[in-house]
C-alpha cells in the first residue's frame, strides 16, 4: 500500500543517514545503518511516510548522539578549543572599540594569499587537502610518512603566515620611520603603527591555529610509533 505523500524511493533520509554513519565506530556502521534502513523500509509498507520518517529520525539521532561523544570526543574538544580561541579573540576585538579598526584589506593580502600559495606550492594541493581532513576525520588510515607530510603543511602555513606578518610589521615600521615627521604633523602616527601591528596579528592568528593542527597530527604520529 502506498500513501499519498509517500515518495517513490524507500531510501532513508540521506543527511540523517550520513550523520549517523559519521558518528558510529567503523565496526558498527554497517549493522546499525543497515538495521535502520531495513526497518524503515518495512515501516513504509505499513505506515504513513511522515510517521516512518519521524521514527527513523528519532532512532538515528538518539543513536548518533549516544556514539558522538564516545567516538568523536577528540574532534569535539578540538572544535571547542578552536571556537573558544576565536570567540575570545573576537570578544577582545569588540571590547577594545570598533571592530572596523581591526580590518585592513592590504594587510590581509600581505599575509594570507602568499602563505596559502607557498604552502600549496611546497606541499601539493592533495597533501593540503589531506591535512585539513585529518583535523576532522579520526578514521583516516594513514602511515607515518603521510602523517608527517600532513604535519609539514601546518608547519609551513603557520610559519609562513607568522613571517609574512612580521615582514608587514617591519615594512610598516620602515615606512613610518621614513615619513615620521609628516606622519606626526598629520597626527597619523597612531593609525600607522596600528596597521603595522595589525599585519603581525594577522600572521599570529593562523600560526596559533596551525600549531594546534600540528600538535594534533604529532599526537597521531606518536600513537602510530608506539
Amino acid at each position: 500500500m502506498r500513501f499519498k505523500n509517500q515518495p517513490m524511493v524507500s531510501q532513508p533520509p540521506q543527511i540523517t543517514e550520513r550523520f549517523l554513519t559519521w558518528c558510529l565506530p567503523t565496526e558498527l556502521k554497517e549493522p546499525v545503518v543497515g538495521d535502520l534502513a531495513e526497518e524503515y523500509s518495512q515501516k513504509l509498507q505499513s505506515q504513513d511516510y511522515l510517521t516512518a520518517l519521524a521514527w527513523y529520525q528519532r532512532q538515528a539521532v538518539r543513536t548518533a548522539v549516544r556514539y558522538l561523544w564516545q567516538n568523536k570526543r577528540g574532534l569535539l574538544m578540538f572544535i571547542l578549543g578552536l571556537l573558544t580561541f576565536l570567540a575570545t579573540l573576537l570578544m577582545a576585538i569588540m571590547f577594545s572599540g570598533e571592530v572596523g579598526i581591526f580590518i585592513n584589506v592590504p594587510s590581509i593580502l600581505v599575509v594570507y594569499p602568499p602563505a596559502i600559495f607557498l604552502t600549496i606550492g611546497i606541499c601539493s594541493a592533495q597533501t593540503c587537502k589531506t591535512a585539513l581532513r585529518l583535523l576532522f576525520d579520526n578514521e583516516l588510515i594513514m602511515d607515518i610518512t603521510e602523517l608527517k607530510a600532513a604535519k609539514h603543511v601546518y608547519t609551513i602555513l603557520g610559519n609562513s603566515s607568522l613571517w609574512l606578518g612580521f615582514m608587514g610589521l617591519v615594512i610598516g615600521g620602515v615606512a613610518i620611520a621614513i615619513d615620521v615627521n609628516e606622519i606626526i604633523e598629520h597626527q597619523m602616527l597612531g593609525p600607522a603603527i596600528g596597521i603595522s601591528i595589525l599585519t603581525f596579528m594577522y600572521g599570529l592568528i593562523p600560526k596559533v591555529i596551525c600549531y594546534i593542527g600540528e600538535q594534533k597530527i604529532q599526537h597521531l604520529i606518536i600513537q602510530k610509533e608506539a
Binding site: L28, P31, V32, D35, R62, T63, A64, V65, Y67
Partner: peptide, 24 residues
C-alpha cells in the same frame, strides 16, 4: 541480529529500545 532482537523486545515486553542502546 539488531532488528529482530528489537522486534522481539517490543513484542514480548512492549519495550521500545533504540538501536544505539541495543548495540552498546
Amino acid at each position: 541480529y539488531g532488528k529482530t532482537v528489537r522486534e522481539l523486545l517490543a513484542e514480548q515486553l512492549n519495550r521500545d529500545v533504540t538501536v544505539g542502546a541495543l548495540y552498546a
